[in-house]
């Protein structure tokens, strides 16, 4: 037990270290700019006076390490500073949008994970069958499509031609859960389509890999029923790779959400991020990037830890 706690502690430390490194990149990226940020954003036409004021506002007069510490302290306490474009508190801007984005991502994940695992396992079991080949072609096609293509096709059919769902996902906190789900269905479906394809292909590959193991052949030669072979012999060993696949694709969702939110005008973090990039509202972008990166790292960390605690080699060392 001691042993495994040590490994987990190491992973956690590594995760924290990565987060730290990323926070450095996010804040010090600004330093790479020739001249400085104030000048770059205001452009050539700005008077020295406006540049000076703007610089003070951004805190560019302070040495970089102090600015970093301020920023880090603010991120930790929930005070993320002020937006450049509309002078509002960033935490205020982000609050509701973050939960909207998590809602959309969670909704998509809830459909995608069971669907992808089932399809992946079935394709692995009946590999090289017609079913497998069909699903292979379909998924390869669907991972090749840009998200906005899928999104517009769905809009064209289900929102415009059939009129079943709204083409714009206007949601707010006053809506009932049912209403929210209804309005979020198309964006969630877009995300699901792309995500399922990736996840299903990886699941299939890892199960096929596993089914080639000598212990699976041994189980067959022991006369174990096929279903039991899958459930008792393959799945416990497949758990770690499958969790990794899920984490990897949830992380993928985190990114996919940005484009989907823009297409469906969904009031989430992704849209805020894109808007802020075009307005060059650096503080907001930094805060959003940090949140996205943290979610991404936490998901991967979670997968890592699951694969450690399900591995008997690590649980019960020699």
């Amino acid at each position: 037990m001691q042993h495994i706690l040590k490994i987990i502690a190491q992973r956690l430390a590594l995760g924290l270290l990565t987060l730290f490194a990323i926070s450095l990149i996010i804040t010090f990226g600004v330093e790479l700019l020739p001249g400085d940020l104030a000048q770059a954003i205001l452009g050539q036409g700005a008077t020295p006076e406006t540049v000076r004021v703007f610089r003070l506002e951004l805190g560019l007069d302070k040495p970089p390490y102090l600015r970093y510490l301020d920023w880090l302290g603010g991120m930790a306490t929930g005070d993320m500073g002020v937006s450049l474009s509309n002078k509002r508190q960033i935490s205020e801007l982000i609050g509701m949008r973050l939960s909207n984005t998590l809602f959309l991502g969670g909704f998509a994940a809830l459909i995608a994970i069971p669907l992808a695992l089932t399809l992946g396992i079935l394709a692995a079991l009946y590999r090289n069958s017609l079913f497998d080949r069909t699903i292979n072609t379909v998924t390869i096609t669907s991972i090749s499509f840009p998200e906005f293509f899928i999104a517009y096709v769905l809009i064209l059919f289900f929102a415009i031609n059939l009129g079943w769902f709204p083409g714009i996902s206007n949601i707010s906190s006053e809506l009932s859960l049912g209403d929210r789900l209804y309005r979020t269905l198309l964006p969630a479906a877009t995300l699901t389509l792309v995500c399922v394809a990736h996840m299903m292909r990886m699941t299939r590959a890892s199960i096929i890999n596993l089914l080639a193991s000598p212990y699976i052949e041994m189980a067959r030669l022991k006369g174990i029923k096929p279903m039991r072979i899958i459930m008792r012999h393959a799945l416990p060993n497949a758990l770690a790779p499958i969790v990794n696949v899920i984490a990897l694709n949830l992380a993928y969702l985190v990114v996919g959400v940005v484009i989907v939110e823009v297409v469906f005008v969904y009031p989430g973090l992704g849209q805020l991020l894109v808007d802020s990039v075009s307005k060059r509202d650096v503080p907001v972008v930094q805060a959003c990037s940090m949140i996205f990166a943290s979610v991404y790292i936490l998901l991967n960390l979670f997968a890592d830890i699951v694969s450690i605690i399900t591995n008997p080699r690590l649980l019960y060392p020699r």
């Binding site: 600004v30 770059a40 990166a293």
Partner: peptide, 21 residues
Amino acid sequence: VDVFMAIPSLIFALLILSIFG
């Protein structure tokens, strides 16, 4: 490389674009 891979690339690209235009 591990550190770079730990940041979703779209997010990273957006960050750079916001800084550098």
